[in-house]
Write a protein that binds this DNA or RNA. Structure first.
Length: 577
RNA sequence: GCGCUCUUAGCUCAGCUGGAUAGAGCAUCGGUUUUCUAAACCGAGGGUCGGUGGUUCGAGUCCACCAGAGCGCACCA
């Protein structure tokens, strides 16, 4: 029940018919025609720009065209109260009150599918997100991207796409060796009372390593820790497994579950890197060469060397990218190329990667390689989440990874809770930096959008409770012959926007539109609720302790949309607060 | 030096792929509770959409240039 699409279809049919009859010229594309929400303070429900789009092809003013169309539209639709032409050439339509009976009927009877974008072609998506190094628990920096990826998945799933959520485990390379060494020294600290070499800046100093070391020694008393090289293989596996356990717990506490974890080591062991390089070689995209130093670097620090390079400049990157290190091992980029080759072999329609702001510079080369391998542009979409600025008591505080005293996801959740974390992280466009204010997030007031929306749901629940009805049960109404007032229609119009919100969020991968919408809807509801104080007719429960069907469906429809939206966001809707 | 992102009210931000008179919250000031949840509501003030050009019926939105902020720029991951 997308009223905008419904009228767009009607209008397109009408102008095509007129074109066939020879009374109207059509432009090359009808894509510019839309049916939209009119601005505030306009006494109408929907508006369209058809006339303006048609104006050029017909060499007529849009006002003239609008005037002819207006009559024709009204003739075909008895639910229109007024239809008028406004200044530049908009056609504005206002529905009769009965229109909203039909609307609310449709929404209530098919509430599970209300908002689902049926026009969207169903696709198979693979979305990769988080993919933090398995060298410790997740910290706040990972959090935003994690939630972003999860909710984008939820939106796509809501729209009936097939979505696979994936985590790429970077369990290969120097970081992992350093991490394993750190665990090794922590183990020796436990077993032999040796001091941890804190001065070695390559090592990970965090306290959580002590726990990891304990877990490993507790469970593996047959292992010897006399020489690092002797145990490094087993210890790497054990350490990474411990890290992943931590990470999975963190994710679970955030309400996130991935469908698949792919190991980088496995990609390397299976020779997938060689395979992808061979494939790129065949396309003449790999060569031995040198990279130029970036201008900012002093030339003296720059070591020029011959290495295996991928021609990402062919795809718009500013330099070609190294595939192999001087010790002949693969670069991160090489194995990531192999991983993306692996993804492509699994036949997804579209790949999505969620990256942190600090990896934005990486996008060009990875999309280049995917384009090279798949032969299609835009097969891989990269979405960047900007930084989160943590604020406490009005002051920003920074985390220092070096000292190992950074704020973890665990800290965050125990401080403010999963729901607030998710809602606040999503409440802004991922393109802008986000202020995450601990003090405000914990506040139970209008300052906190999460509570504001939840409170709306709780108020509706309380009405259901008072009349002994279950808000979770489907509501069946036999006759929808109501007469909604302007105040109610205002909210129904907001409800009608829900499919539009979902459509935009899904098409543009912008989840923040959902919390923003839910806030607006809640605001209108709270406003309506307070009218009941002065105007008895606005109250839901009447003096006979009954609730008329008209008000009941009205509440039901609002609560369903809030529930639906909050489910996508991944937060609870308590019935009591 | 180069790339990406951002610049909208005092502050934090929306603005639905170019539409009409640019919207919220916070903060400030003033009001609302014998009545379904005041974790709420109502009202007031507050704007050259960073700047300059361009594209067109129409620009906060697209393009170019300029200014400012953040992130990044080797074989790290």
């Amino acid at each position: 029940m997308n009223i905008f699409d419904h009228y767009l279809d009607k209008i397109i049919i009408l102008i095509k018919k007129l074109n066939k009859e020879g009374s109207l010229e059509l432009p090359e594309s009808l894509n510019g025609i839309n049916v939209d929400i009119p601005p505030l303070n306009f006494d109408c429900d929907i508006s369209t720009n058809v006339a303006m789009v048609l104006s050029k092809a017909n060499k007529k003013s849009s006002i003239d065209i609008a005037n002819t169309l207006v009559g024709l539209i009204k003739d075909t639709d008895e639910k229109i109260e007024t239809i008028s032409v406004a200044k530049p050439g908009f056609i504005n339509i206002k529905f009769k009150a009965i229109y909203w009976n039909n609307f609310i009927k449709n929404v209530n009877e098919d509430y599970k599918n209300f908002g689902v974008n049926i026009k969207e072609e169903k696709k198979k998506y693979l979305i990769e997100f988080v993919s933090a190094n398995p060298t410790g628990p997740l910290h706040v920096g990972h959090c935003r991207g994690a939630i972003l990826g999860d909710v984008i998945s939820n939106i796509l799933i809501f729209n009936k796409h097939d979505v696979s959520k994936e985590y790429y485990v970077n369990d290969y390379g120097n970081q992992i060796i350093n991490f394993t060494k750190s665990v090794y020294f922590r183990i020796r600290e436990i077993l032999y009372n040796e001091k941890f070499p804190i001065e070695n800046t390559d090592l990970y100093p965090g306290d959580y390593l002590v726990d990891i070391a304990k877990n490993i020694t507790d469970l593996n008393n047959n292992l010897k820790f006399d020489k690092f090289d002797d145990v490094s293989k087993e210890l790497t596996l054990l350490s990474v497994a411990e890290s992943l356990k931590l990470i999975k717990t963190n994710l679970a506490n955030l309400g996130i579950v991935h469908d698949k974890f792919t190991s980088e080591t496995e990609i390397v062991i299976n020779k997938e890197v060689e395979k992808v390089i061979e494939k790129l070689k065949q396309k003449n995209l790999v060569y031995k060469g040198k990279i130029k130093a970036p201008k900012a670097d002093d030339d003296k620090n720059w070591v020029e060397r011959d290495q295996l390079l991928f021609r990402s400049t062919d795809f718009g990157d500013d330099k070609d990218r190294a595939l192999q290190k001087s010790d002949k091992s693969w670069t991160y980029f090489a194995s990531d190329a192999a991983y993306h080759h692996n993804k492509l072999s699994r036949n997804y329609d579209l790949l999505i990667n969620i990256l942190g702001a600090d990896h934005a510079g990486y996008i060009k080369r990875i999309t280049s390689v995917v384009e090279a391998l798949s032969g299609t542009k835009n097969k891989l979409i990269c979405k960047v989440s900007q930084l989160v600025k943590l604020i406490k008591d009005g002051k920003p505080f920074k985390m220092s990874k070096r000292k190992g005293d950074y704020i973890t996801v665990e800290d965050l959740i125990s401080e403010v809770g999963k729901d607030a974390t998710r809602f606040i992280m999503l409440n802004r466009s991922s393109d802008v930096e986000l202020d995450f204010d601990f003090t405000k997030v914990k506040e139970k007031s209008k300052d906190n959008p999460l509570y504001y929306v939840q409170y709306c749901y709780a108020r509706i629940s309380s009405v259901f409770r008072h009349v002994n009805l279950d808000i979770n049960k489907d509501l069946t109404i036999y006759e929808y012959n109501f007469n909604y007032s302007n105040d109610e229609i205002k909210i129904l119009k907001k409800i009608a926007e829900w499919p539009k919100c979902i459509e935009a969020a899904s098409l543009r991968l912008e989840p923040h539109r959902i919390p923003v919408y839910l806030y607006e809807l809640s605001s209108e509801f709270h406003s309506y609720w307070n009218m009941g104080k002065e105007n008895y007719s606005k109250r839901f429960i009447n003096d006979k302790k009954k609730i008329p069907n008209e008000k009941l469906v009205f509440l039901k429809v609002i609560s369903n949309v809030i529930k639906s939206g909050m489910t996508i966001v991944g937060v609870n809707t308590p019935e009591k607060m």
